[in-house]
Computed example of a mutant assay.
Amino acid sequence: MPTTEESRAEAELASAEGWPGVRDGETMRFTDLPGMTLAVRRRAAAVDRLEPALFVHGLGGSSRNWSALMEQLAFDVECEAIDLPGFGASPPPTSGDYSVYGHTRAVIRLLDAGRRGPVHLLGNSLGGSIATRVAALRPDLVRTLTLIAPALPERLPRPGAIPTGMLGVPGVTRLLRRATRGQPPSQRAREVLRLCYGDPARITPQEFSAAEAELERRQRLPYFWESLGRTTRGLLNAYTLGGQHSLWRQAERVLAPTLLLYGGRDRLLGVGSARRASRAFGCSRLVVLPEAGHVAMMEFPAEVAGAFREFLTGATANAGHGGVADGRS
């Protein structure tokens, strides 16, 4: 396990060299917080005095997953996306805590340190479960909540999700590291994208190239497999929690207006989860994009941006009337 100083130096070197996928108009910065250093991707706002938004990526992803959507929303919100500890350009946490609560703590500390709250909080997959916990535990930090295919417990997991879940089994990542040692990053990047996209034909050459470069870069990091395996285990453990700590009970505690976005061709998450989520979140609007997969913000950024703007307009209007109406659809 590298020291904090070594991990920080590695991450800063990556930033100095140009972390794969950093687009024009984006910058990367590092924030030192108790027990962790976080990389944050920022998209320059197109106009002044926009409300802040924070984006939280999914399992195995990074802040780069939000680049297309942040570009679409440059006139709507001030966009920042976090690299969770051990992912993207963020070194691992000194505590070694990769649980959902550990990642939730990282998001809360970042918001507290930057004094940016309340923010429009957006999360995808694992990032959706983290964002749910943030909104439930610290409602003062969340203006609105947008969840894209959030990782919430399902009674019957989709077949496509089983191989991902296996990463949380002790020893599996060690076997995978050996088995994939000679596998080119291009092959693994293509497999991941094909699993996450509803229509693999929509994977652009630019997206594939960026995903391949980032994977190649991350596989050289000494903590790559550990962060992936332990975060998967942390998510599976969160699925088993009952009572007040269950993710569904946390969803019921969320006070912020919530937009739920699901893909009709999601191989990792069933539509039944969307219906349950629309009932669990007290003030929510459900939007299903029929052709989208698990990462709608990458596959259909314009459509997701349009749904977010419409949701934002409704939430603002309702807040102006002294309350928030149920906007389910």
Rank of each mutant, 00 (worst) to 15 (best):
R233G: 08
R233P: 00
R233F: 07
R233A: 15
G234W: 04
L235K: 11
L235I: 14
L235H: 08
L235M: 14
L236H: 05
L236P: 05
L236F: 05
N237A: 15
A238P: 14
A238G: 08
Y239E: 10
Y239H: 13
Y239F: 14
Y239C: 08
T240D: 14
T240A: 15
T240E: 14
L241P: 08
L241N: 04
G242V: 09
G243W: 12
G243H: 06
G243P: 13
G243L: 11
Q244N: 13
Q244L: 15
Q244I: 14
H245V: 03
H245W: 14
S246H: 12
W248R: 03
W248K: 07
R249L: 02
Q250V: 03
Q250D: 07
Q250C: 12
Q250P: 10
Q250E: 15
A251W: 03
A251S: 07
E252A: 14
E252V: 02
R253M: 12
V254D: 08
V254W: 03
V254Y: 06
V254L: 09
L255P: 02
L255I: 12
L255M: 11
A256H: 09
A256Q: 02
A256S: 12
A256R: 06
P257H: 04
P257N: 01
P257E: 02
L259Y: 04
L260R: 03
L260E: 01
L260V: 00
L261P: 08
L261G: 02
Y262L: 09
Y262V: 04
Y262W: 14
Y262N: 06
G263H: 02
G263I: 01
R265D: 00
R265T: 00
R265N: 06
R265Q: 11
D266G: 01
D266V: 01
D266L: 02
D266F: 07
R267M: 10
R267D: 00
R267H: 08
R267E: 01
L268P: 04
L268C: 03
L269I: 13
G270L: 01
G270W: 05
G270M: 01
V271T: 09
V271H: 10
V271I: 13
S273K: 05
A274Q: 05
R275S: 11
R275P: 07
R275C: 12
R275K: 14
R276V: 03
R276L: 12
R276N: 09
R276C: 06
A277C: 08
A277L: 08
S278Y: 04
R279F: 13
R279E: 14
A280M: 09
F281S: 09
F281C: 12
G282W: 11
G282K: 00
G282L: 11
G282M: 08
G282D: 10
C283W: 14
C283E: 10
S284P: 10
S284R: 05
R285C: 10
R285Q: 15
R285L: 06
L286R: 13
V287W: 13
V287L: 10
V288P: 06
V288F: 10
V288H: 10
V288L: 15
L289T: 07
L289P: 00
L289V: 14
P290W: 15
P290K: 15
P290R: 13
P290T: 12
P290D: 10
E291H: 12
E291M: 13
A292V: 06
A292E: 03
A292I: 08
A292N: 06
H294L: 06
H294P: 07
H294Y: 05
V295G: 00
V295F: 01
V295D: 00
